[in-house]
């Protein structure tokens, strides 16, 4: 259906759309601008929007105050580690449920989903105690395990919905064409499944990167990822706004870019395939 839209109408929506878009984006934009100001300009009244002395100093010194890179590495290790480990466990499971469903497949999926509904705080005490007693407290290993388990249902579900869309007939065709199981996977299944796996990977890195309950409560310093490090700025001595802004921008920028690329998958992943 191609209907002509009057230019006037389009202009009106352009103005409204951009006004709202910029308003919602403003806190991020403001953080971005502040990260290039000096501390003095950051708290100046009236605030300066564009006409200030742009400086890169905050980015250059962000590591001095807070050991930024160590925390960034923690974030990377924890989010990548938990996602990779999750995929390793989830791919076979999702595969088997998508291609050889049984009468119980649906129940298993539903049950997995229900574990995701458990509020984290409900198991705060036992997890804290287990961590304390096994020496996992404030270790990256501990966080990798917890975040992997926490996101495993989402990973299985997402992969399941993607795998489900690969028609079984194609795999059968490969079998008829003489492909062994190994070749079936390399030549047919993997190329068709990789986009789904990639989306799942992306969304789960985002979720793990931004997780701010366990990462804040189960770390003190050594294994603290960026979420926990930024939280430490909340103490009064951390009131260095432009440095906080620079640290924040570095913490959110990579994920923001990834998020923009995975809009569609986000909907699917977070609604467990209920909305596509």
């Amino acid at each position: 259906m191609a209907r002509t839209v009057t230019t006037n109408r389009k202009l009106v929506f352009t103005v409204i759309g951009w006004a709202i878009g910029l308003t919602l984006f403003f806190p991020i934009l403001w953080t971005f601008l502040t990260s290039f100001k000096t501390e003095g300009e950051a708290i100046a009244t009236p605030p300066s929007f564009l006409f200030f002395d742009w400086t890169l100093e905050n980015y250059l010194t962000v590591n001095d105050r807070s050991d930024y890179f160590r925390h960034a590495i923690n974030s990377v290790v924890i989010s990548l580690g938990s996602t990779a480990l999750g995929l390793l466990v989830a791919i076979p499971a999702a595969w088997s449920m998508a291609f050889t469903p049984t009468k119980r497949t649906k129940d298993i999926l539903m049950w997995m989903l229900s574990t995701k509904m458990l509020p984290a705080v409900g198991v705060l005490v036992p997890i804290t105690l287990i961590f304390r007693d096994t020496g996992l407290m404030d270790t990256r290993t501990g966080l990798v395990i917890v975040l992997m388990l926490m996101n495993l249902p989402i990973i299985v579900w997402m992969l399941f919905t993607y795998f489900k869309e690969i028609p079984g007939e194609i795999l059968e065709a490969a079998r008829m064409d003489g492909a062994t199981l190994g070749k079936e996977i390399i030549y047919v299944l993997a190329p068709m499944a990789v986009p789904g796996i990639a989306s799942t990977l992306l969304l789960n890195i985002i979720l793990a990167w931004n997780e701010a309950f366990w990462t804040v409560l189960l770390t003190t310093n050594n294994a603290a990822p960026l979420t926990a490090m930024i939280a430490q700025y909340s103490s009064p001595e951390g009131l260095f706004w432009s440095k906080l802004s620079a640290a924040s921008m570095l913490a959110i920028a990579p994920i923001l870019v990834m998020g923009w690329f995975s809009q569609k998958q986000l909907v699917r992943g977070l609604t467990f395939g209920a909305v596509k």
Binding site: F25, I28, T31, I206, A228, G259
Partner: peptide
């Protein structure tokens, strides 16, 4: 965009 900002950052900002 705001959905991808980690909670601690958005809270502090």
């Amino acid at each position: 965009a705001p959905f991808f900002v980690m909670p601690t950052v958005s809270a502090l900002v």
